[in-house]
Each structure stands twice: as C-alpha cells, then as structure tokens.
Amino acid sequence: MRALVIDDSRAMRAILTRQLSALGFDVAQAFDGRDALDLLGTGYVPDVALVDWNMPRLDGLSFIKAVRARPELREVTLMMVTTESEHDKIVRALAAGAHEYVIKPFTDEVIADKLALLGLVGV
C-alpha cells in the first residue's frame, strides 16, 4: 500500500510518515497541494493521501477538489489531517470528497483507527 503525506511542516510529515511506515505503508511526501499534484502528474497513484488544510500555494481543500475532478484518481482515499476543527470546515471537506477527517493534535491510535475504518489496514 502507498500513502502520500501532504503538509508544509516537515515535523508533521515526519510524524505521519513514521506512523504510516509502522503500519506497512510505503510513504511519499509533498510540501503542499501544488507539490502533490505535480507528483500525481508523474503517474504516482497512492492508495491514501493525508492532506493538511492550510498550506502555501495550494490548500488541502483545493487539492481534494482537483483529485476528485480526475477520474483516473477516483480510487485514491483522501484523509484531511488539519488543525481546522469547525463543523463547517469538516462538512466542506467531506462534501468535496474527503473520506475521513482528523483534527490535530492526534494520537497514533487515531490515525490507525481511521485507516482501519477505511479498510486500509487490519484491525
């Protein structure tokens, strides 16, 4: 399984990469939504992408909309991982095509549980 971590914080990318690697994922990283779309443009298709909301150049919500507009990426599971915790933001992300929503700060167990709910790791 392949996972793409999209966050402008190297520290957060490292945290998520460590957690995902421990769950058996091959992990790629992107600095922001633009960087991630460039990576997807090379033909790389992850099974799941963990996406921050507030990032330079292209935010997470725009990235989700861009991915959902591309039929060849319809199998990519999208999980928003963000400090934005208002109900309105959660609704907008899910409406745009995110499958799950994780609010920072989170524990290792939260990420594993969400991935298990999505059928991406065993329970």
Partner: peptide
Amino acid sequence: LLWPPTNSDSTLEPTA
C-alpha cells in the same frame, strides 16, 4: 505574517 492562499476558502461560512 503570511496567509494561506484563498483557492477554496475565500468565503468563510459562519459556524454555529
């Protein structure tokens, strides 16, 4: 301080 782009977020809707 820098603000993130308003690609999708130019209109913030009020929460409860």
